[in-house]
Simulated scan of single mutants.
Amino acid sequence: MNPAVQNLVISLGVMQVARKIPFDDPDVLLYVRIGYVSVQVLVLGIYYYVSMAIKSKNDQTVLKYVDAPNPMTQEPGQLVTTTVRDYDLSETSKLLRSAYMGIAMMAFLHGYMKYTQPLFVQAIMGLKALYEATPVRVHLLGQKAEGDLKRPWKAAGGMFGGAAGGPQTDNAAITEAEKRVGGTSKKDD
Rank of each mutant, 00 (worst) to 15 (best):
M105H: 10
M105Q: 11
M106E: 10
A107C: 09
L109D: 02
G111F: 03
G111K: 07
Y112L: 15
Y112E: 07
Y112F: 06
M113D: 10
M113N: 11
K114E: 12
K114L: 06
Y115M: 15
Y115F: 15
T116I: 04
T116P: 05
Q117Y: 12
P118H: 06
F120P: 07
F120D: 06
F120A: 05
V121Y: 04
Q122L: 13
Q122C: 10
Q122R: 11
A123Y: 04
I124C: 03
M125H: 01
M125R: 07
G126D: 05
L127F: 00
K128I: 11
K128Y: 07
A129G: 12
L130K: 02
Y131C: 07
Y131N: 10
A133Q: 01
A133T: 03
A133N: 08
T134R: 14
P135G: 13
P135S: 07
V136D: 05
R137H: 00
V138E: 10
H139P: 04
H139F: 14
H139R: 09
H139W: 11
L140E: 02
L140D: 03
L141C: 04
L141F: 15
L141N: 13
G142M: 02
K144L: 10
A145P: 07
A145I: 01
A145K: 12
A145N: 00
E146W: 00
G147Y: 00
G147F: 04
G147H: 02
D148V: 09
D148M: 13
